[in-house]
Write a protein that binds this DNA or RNA. Sequence first.
DNA 1: TATTGTTATACTCTATAACTATA
DNA 2: TATAGTTATAGAGTATAACAATA
Lengths: 170, 170
Amino acid sequence: MGNYIEGMSSEHLERKTRPADSRRRGESVTEVEEHDLPRQAWTLLFELMHAHMRNFPALAAEFELSPVQAHVLRQLGEAPLAMSTLANYLSCDASNVTGLVDRMEARGLVERRSSEQDRRVKMLVLTDAGAALRERLLERMAEPPEAIAAMGDDDLRALRDIMRRALKPQ
Amino acid sequence: MGNYIEGMSSEHLERKTRPADSRRRGESVTEVEEHDLPRQAWTLLFELMHAHMRNFPALAAEFELSPVQAHVLRQLGEAPLAMSTLANYLSCDASNVTGLVDRMEARGLVERRSSEQDRRVKMLVLTDAGAALRERLLERMAEPPEAIAAMGDDDLRALRDIMRRALKPQ
DNA sequence: TATTGTTATACTCTATAACTATA
DNA sequence: TATAGTTATAGAGTATAACAATA
């Protein structure tokens, strides 16, 4: 992982027509644009996020964390997490989590604890130092980028409400 | 880079108050919420993007590209690009670009061409195969995630217009 | 037998430092 | 001297495969 942050120029999408198999014939330009609405919105969103995500490795480095370690710290909240669950969350093979946790444990951020129910399983818990660093990291990550900070209140309210609806379960 | 895609639970931010140094005394809950608007909107946006970005390495792998190679392919549009410019765009050291371009060149996606003006500089250009792969990649990246595709037209139009304003230069 | 976590191995990405060839 | 790109080296992240302990 890493910078894995990524973007896409809106120029590309806004100049392209839809793929032929989804194109309806005989519709006006306005209708075409309406049909492409999800694509248009997504592309612009992507562009804004990409510009910001380029800075994520540097942000993690402020806390002497690799990008992946920063993700793990964010994910490890109150509840203990099995190694396999973390691997699943990171979308990576379980073998990678061993070394990742080794490094974070060596630094005193997390601890492995054998599960009582199933002694194959090792649960990860934050140490006090890990929890403290996590709070600082989350505060830092919550700082909005310039493009957001500069928006007017009306747009911010609308954006917040749209995102709440989009993220609402179901 | 990589997965570098990342997120943050809205739970965290929405339960926290602002840092003490920016907190005004004697204001109502509503005023506090208004003051936190950029943070609220940003956190929700971040959550949506993070959920999607976890899939970026898998998306790149559909084209047998690493996440970083996918970024490079996206960035290498029509115009040739100096190695140093690419390093700057990737926010990484120039030494990394050498190996990165080596691998993409070995695969026939890009070519190095010495600059006429300054023979220290090497310009990167896409091969025909590279340009064709880039088109397919961009099409794939433009597919909106479920959370966007499921939104209503009113929200999509509002989101698109808000993002256009936010991304507008100046 | 199946699953959890580990180890071994290999490749990619990343940084720093020293080098070259140009400028 | 300064800059663009390379090479050497080291460490982190990733995957696959084989393994031990446990279920």
